[in-house]
Design a protein around this nucleic acid. Structure first.
Lengths: 225, 225
DNA sequence: ATATTTAATTTTGCATTCAAAATTATGTCA
DNA sequence: TGACATAATTTTGAATGCAAAATTAAATAT
């Protein structure tokens, strides 16, 4: 009786699986911004026909990750500085909202979990482990989003986040910026613990604005990765 | 023969055209929330094969307008009070942002155009022409969004808006609520003319909160339309 | 050689087909 | 009659097929 055997079997459609895989390919940079998506190649690689692949591309297009040109197929949307300047204010508004809502609804246990991740992040920062730092960083923002208890908000944020994640990941921070980001995160945690929603909203927005500057500077300098 | 929007499709990519048509069918209530989307029937009606129709449904699903259940096809996502309470805060944040950005960037000509639409709206209000009032109302909000010069913001807003537009349209306001909405719009226009971004943001957010209450009350009373 | 056509090839968009799953209809028996 | 099983039908997901458009290669003329 106490068997965990009766959970619904998770059946995923191919296109759904493909949406996720293609997203990863784009974020991880295997599919290069500006380049066209090699439909046939990907079909062979994942051993699927063109039908689900094309369905997936349509979805990615509606999310802005890919650009469809009539009779010319799909290409990976290139992230320009202008794009970032469009996306970040919107993400900022969403993050601010997530902060406000989270403060209203977050449990002590969730705050404790975030605090733990925060400490891990600080350790990575001190040891200059950038990838691990990034992972912890992202985990914190996702945890706050989750605490806001609003799937619509999470979904919108995830969509925008996907569009800029690669740029954000590639842009390496200067020492000062990194210090500043960490300081802001201390502030975020403290404000979350105080459950000061309005203030958390403002801080998160400012925090994101700083990220934008980092990425923006990098994009203007090195350009594409 | 009644010549409506049922004519065979003329140009551009089929799936793209279909996305738009299906959206309208959902908003206008021909496709009923909770009911499943009659794929075959729609294919015959628009004279297309299932391939582009299914592509369109995938896109609508990613926008939350329809729900895909594995091996069971698509159904129109039903808007519940809980959904509204999720969607409105997000829309509120986006509208607030649109107000802030619009005040920074709007031209005098655009303000004049909005003022004109506003006056027309007031006339419809006084004459109790609800549909015309709604159209003018929506035009104003779209104009503000446009003045914000942020396509990402517009796109996100449009997506969420589509999800609740039908409910918003059907929910008929009480006299008091309508009076209040109009008063708020006077305020919106004045603040826009003064180009007070932060204040406009706050007003727009509050304005939307009132709309939510209207729709929410209606949903709880009459329920589905 | 270098443009400019023209032909061959690939890619794209969509229709069609097919197998598996779900739904409905039919039949069986208590 | 009605609960259950089984067969027929429809619907769904995905592969394949095919014509039009786009791209590349080859051929011709300058």
């Amino acid at each position: 009786m106490t068997m965990t055997m009766d959970e619904a079997i998770v059946r995923r459609s191919l296109h759904d699986e493909l949406v996720e895989r293609l997203q990863r390919l784009i974020i991880e940079g295997e599919l290069i911004p500006g380049e066209k998506v090699p439909e046939k190649e990907l079909c062979e690689r994942y051993n699927v026909s063109r039908t689900p692949m094309r369905e997936a591309l349509k979805v990615l297009a509606s999310e802005g990750l890919v650009t469809l040109t009539p009779n010319r197929g799909a290409s990976v949307t290139a992230v320009t500085v202008e794009d970032l300047e469009e996306v970040f204010p919107v993400m900022g508004a969403l993050e601010a909202l997530s902060g406000e809502l989270a403060c209203e609804k977050i449990t002590d246990a969730e705050i404790a979990a975030i605090a733990k991740t925060h400490r891990a992040m600080i350790a990575h920062y001190k040891a200059r482990r950038l990838p691990e730092y990034f992972a912890a960083n992202e985990a914190i923002h996702i945890a706050i989003l989750k605490a806001a208890r609003n799937d619509t908000l999470s979904a919108q944020h995830r969509m925008l986040s996907a569009r800029v994640r690669r740029a954000r990941y590639l842009a390496n921070m200067t020492r000062e910026r990194w210090d500043k980001a960490v300081a802001e995160h201390e502030d975020i945690l403290a404000t979350l613990q105080a459950r000061d929603g309005p203030r958390l909203g403002i801080i998160l927005k400012q925090h994101l604005r700083n990220k934008l500057e980092t990425v923006s500077e990098w994009l203007q300098a090195d350009g594409r990765g």
